[in-house]
Design a protein around this nucleic acid. Sequence first.
DNA 1: GACAAAATTTAGGCTAGCCTAAATAAGGAT
DNA 2: ATCCTTATTTAGGCTAGCCTAAATTTTGTC
Lengths: 226, 226
Amino acid sequence: MRDELTHAVEDYLKTIYDLSLTHGRASTTQIAEVLEIAPASVTGMIKRLSTTRPPLVEYIKHRGVILTPEGERVALEIIRHHRLLELFLYETLGYSWDKVDAEADRLEHVISEEFEARIAEALGDPTHDPHGDPIPDKNLLMPSHAKLSLREMRPDQCGTIQRVRDNDPDLLRYLSEQGIVPQAHFIVTGYTPFDNNITILVDGQPKAVVLGPRITRQIFVEQENG
Amino acid sequence: MRDELTHAVEDYLKTIYDLSLTHGRASTTQIAEVLEIAPASVTGMIKRLSTTRPPLVEYIKHRGVILTPEGERVALEIIRHHRLLELFLYETLGYSWDKVDAEADRLEHVISEEFEARIAEALGDPTHDPHGDPIPDKNLLMPSHAKLSLREMRPDQCGTIQRVRDNDPDLLRYLSEQGIVPQAHFIVTGYTPFDNNITILVDGQPKAVVLGPRITRQIFVEQENG
DNA sequence: GACAAAATTTAGGCTAGCCTAAATAAGGAT
DNA sequence: ATCCTTATTTAGGCTAGCCTAAATTTTGTC
Ligand SMILES: [Mn+2]
Ligand SMILES: [Mn+2]
Ligand SMILES: [Mn+2]
Ligand SMILES: [Mn+2]
């Protein structure tokens, strides 16, 4: 069906997919920041993506882009590769969870459908990667996932960690040292306004931890009704 | 030490290494054939490879190229990636031996040194890939390997299959159907001059097989003194 | 040793993807 | 509504890698 797309194109589509989830439409500058390239270069690329047949994005000048159904299909395919690879590196090869993202970022573009199928099977058709990110299934259907960020929680509320943004290796190492990993259960023991610090006590950990908003914004949880 | 080389450069160096083993110096046309690109393009690339610092090939106009020590180091690094990957795909992911080459050809350029180290360890620091090709060790030292081709053998001589060229998936499937795989023991039962057909009986196989020179040239064996 | 065939190089051109600098459009404050 | 800032696009340029067609060198044959 789809002929070969370049690695660059695949990375653009993956990035646009991610940005659309939180911001609706992806702007030139946002894409440029994530991909660490000049905004002018992004303009050139999204023009191309919007004029392929079929178009991969819908582009309105000065208004940014959204993915077309075909663009989304490609993005989900790459995201499936990426997250399956992360889990494979973590589970099968013993990588630490802060190193899998960088490796998967390159591998995602070169593995075949057979490779994808074989690691999916070896891992038992998993639904979530090591950071709790949902893995689209074979038909590219995305499992539901927590959207409540830890920043919104308040004292005496409790829940489980579901998902942690995976782009910052140092943060990931820090968090796992504190026991803040998917499935960990915690209770909020403190909140300070103005600086928006949140203190949580994670089950099985000796001490509570204070987390600033730059961190809590990156953590998604499932709240328990209690 | 070495900064990033492109996939294309790595494939050139790997190809030149291979060609040098059998032909001494690699010619423009030979490289072009293996890589399936126009000879004119090869000329352009080998000029570049010969003028990098340090140079990766030694180029004499109209006389082809040989690898410099640095070029050979890079080639061996990629060949180690390739062959470790082939074995990993074969052993760990259950690929058939005719499909591993194509997949490894892409993966070899993107895996990190950590990935290399982890699969090497998982496989027990192997010395040979699924086709019997030698895998350079961590220090890029190439294990010794059989250089006697099956084509040179004659009736009543026997030996074991050591190595089969891996570039033709159809041939690989055919050979494994006949039990012609590394470590298989066989005896030569026939030879016909002019057409250079060789008949061998492989241990454990019901019938002898006649193999033409196009095939026997691709198979390397260890002869048994008998 | 001349000459044709084969191998190789040169010349000119193309696409993908990036860049910087300059021009323009959008949005917010007054 | 105007001004200013910020976002975006346009213009022009660069490298990597490929291509074809034409020129040139090498080589094998007589
Ligand atoms: Mn990527
Ligand atoms: Mn992840
Ligand atoms: Mn390759
Ligand atoms: Mn092989």
